[in-house]
Design a protein around this nucleic acid. Structure first.
Length: 151
DNA sequence: GCCAACGTTGGC
DNA sequence: GCCAACGTTGGC
């Protein structure tokens, strides 16, 4: 069982959207490292901190879990999509996505400034890799964030 | 294979 | 909306 932090801009796709849909594909990842994490390391049942980036405020907004392992991100083939990428073919897809299912929504988004001050979260990869949209979490880090979100 | 230029992310 | 940080592209 692995733990992850996945960032989404809430005006694109928020924890409320996931709550309403119950389950959704995580399309639009166009970074190789994040792609490799989804393609090679994410397993059904892995737990995810759903993080609102560029939000008001930015920070963890809830919990999701991986409900389908990696498969090709179809938006790479859609000419009308902003994620269209002609380098990805049906035979040899370049980009992948997983499906995630809703688990819970935090009462409030945990503010980034608060997260910064929590000793148990000092070594989160998120701080070192601010541009990476998917980062691993240790079990303890995941549990610490969930505790902050549900108290 | 280096690295400058470019484009994007995301906090503010 | 700005802009620093940083990942990616492409010329050499």
């Amino acid at each position: 069982m692995n733990y992850w932090l996945m960032k989404s801009e809430p005006h694109e796709f928020s924890i409320d959207d996931l709550m309403r849909k119950k389950r959704h594909h995580w399309d639009g990842v166009r970074n190789y490292e994040a792609r490799n994490i989804m393609r090679d390391r994410m397993k059904v049942g892995d737990l995810v901190i759903f993080y609102h980036s560029d939000g008001d405020p930015s920070g963890p907004a809830g919990v999701a879990k991986v409900s389908r392992e990696a498969y090709p991100d179809f938006t790479q083939w859609k000419r009308s999509s902003k994620y269209f990428d002609p380098r990805g073919t049906k035979r040899d897809p370049l980009w992948f996505m997983v499906d995630v299912a809703f688990v819970k929504k935090f009462k409030n988004v945990i503010e980034r400034d608060l997260l910064r001050e929590v000793p148990a979260l000092r070594n989160m990869p998120l701080w070192k890799r601010p541009r990476l949209s998917i980062t691993p979490l240790a079990k303890k880090e995941f549990e610490t964030i969930v505790k902050l979100g549900t108290k």
